[in-house]
């Protein structure tokens, strides 16, 4: 008896749950089943699996088609694609485009947004899970979620027409008093509004709800026994957070922040509206202007007629795709099983 069990063990160990009831259709063995039913089963199964495969295929196809369209333009490119700061596609016979400044502006503005949003999101998530009265926690969370429901074009309009003039004094103060730090020195724009600084603040507002939502969800899952362990030692509310909530939720918070970063990297219309274009290369100041991958593509969208210039923009889109893919994949790996979505 025990020998048989031992023999079975190695085979059944590696594969996952062969005994889960739902994985093996119970009626399979019923002899009197109508054949139409079996066909229905296989058709349905095919449709469901096909839809799953379609999602995988969609990602592969996005990469593939962008690549196909980008290659001819990359071959015709006169500049170094990775190091050139210029992006000139006016003459289809003399393309010269590079992504250096696109990459820098994209990452710079997104990271700045992340730096602004992460501490606030952490505070909001802790407030919602550990501080807000129980009855108010859900409505409060809903309010923060509403931030995500506002379309990005409206954030863009608000950002340039309302927020930019309001925070310009802050920008001026930073520029005047802290201008010796490279972040705050005068950039490649003649003005202090419509800069990466302005855009970063708008992006921070836009990614706040996603970081908050993911962190909140994970913090709320902190096992009760860990919280009780800390409380029984006489921990204050803040110490309980330090001992139980944060160690448990740290990975979720980081994963949420990565998702927020991914969102900021790909944000298009708000950035296009808020951050001004600049004729000179970026200088690593928050008061620079310029294009991100997404805003450059959107700005040129109405001129997508000739294949080669269009391919140049598509190659920029391909880089953005790879960038967000990596960031989102990292987020998922960091989160482990704790975050869904």
């Amino acid at each position: 008896m025990s020998e048989r069990i031992e023999q079975r063990a190695p085979g059944s160990e590696g594969e996952e749950d062969p005994i889960v009831p739902s994985s093996s259709p119970v009626p399979e063995s019923t002899p009197r089943r109508a054949p139409s039913s079996r066909r229905g089963e296989s058709v349905f199964r095919f449709l469901a699996s096909g839809s799953g495969v379609l999602v995988v295929a969609a990602i592969a196809l996005i990469g593939l088609f962008l690549l196909i369209q980008a290659v001819p333009s990359l071959m015709a490119n006169n500049a170094n694609f990775f190091t050139s700061p210029e992006f000139s596609t006016g003459d289809a016979n003399n393309l010269s485009f590079g992504i250096r400044d696109l990459f820098l502006v994209t990452v710079f503005s997104s990271v700045f947004a992340l730096v602004l949003a992460m501490p606030v999101a952490l505070g909001v998530a802790l407030f919602l899970t550990n501080y807000a009265p129980k009855q108010l926690s859900r409505p409060f969370a809903y309010v923060v979620d509403l931030l995500a429901a506002v379309p990005s074009i409206i954030y863009g309009l608000w950002g340039i027409l309302v927020l930019a003039p309001a925070i310009e004094p802050i920008a001026r103060w930073l520029n005047t008093n802290l201008g010796w730090i490279f972040l705050f020195r005068t950039g490649n724009l003649p003005v202090l509004s419509g800069t990466i600084f302005t855009g970063g603040v708008v992006l921070a507002v836009m990614i706040l709800p996603i970081i908050t939502a993911v962190s909140r969800e994970v913090f709320a899952q902190t096992p009760r026994f860990q919280i009780e362990a800390a409380k029984a030692l006489g921990a204050t509310r803040w110490e309980v957070i330090r001992m139980a909530t944060l160690p448990y939720g740290r990975s979720g918070y980081i994963a949420g922040s990565m998702l927020g970063l991914g969102r900021a990297l790909g944000e298009t219309i708000a950035v296009l509206i808020v951050i001004r274009a600049s004729t000179s290369p970026m200088t690593f100041s928050l008061f620079d202007g310029g294009y991100t991958f997404a805003s450059l593509i959107a700005s040129a969208a109405s001129e997508f007629s000739q294949p080669l210039p269009t391919g140049a923009y598509i190659s920029a889109g391909l880089v953005l795709f790879v960038l967000t893919f990596v960031v989102n994949a990292l987020a998922r790996v960091i989160a482990g099983g704790k975050v869904n979505g």
């Binding site: 009780e228 409380k231 029984a232 006489g234 001992m243």
Partner: peptide, 21 residues
């Protein structure tokens, strides 16, 4: 309550060490 718990220790039904510590 925090001061009370500081004085009166507790051991729970399920062992609950802090897993990351």
């Amino acid at each position: 309550a925090v001061a009370v718990r500081r004085t009166i220790g507790m051991v729970f039904q399920m062992p609950n060490p802090f897993p990351t510590m």
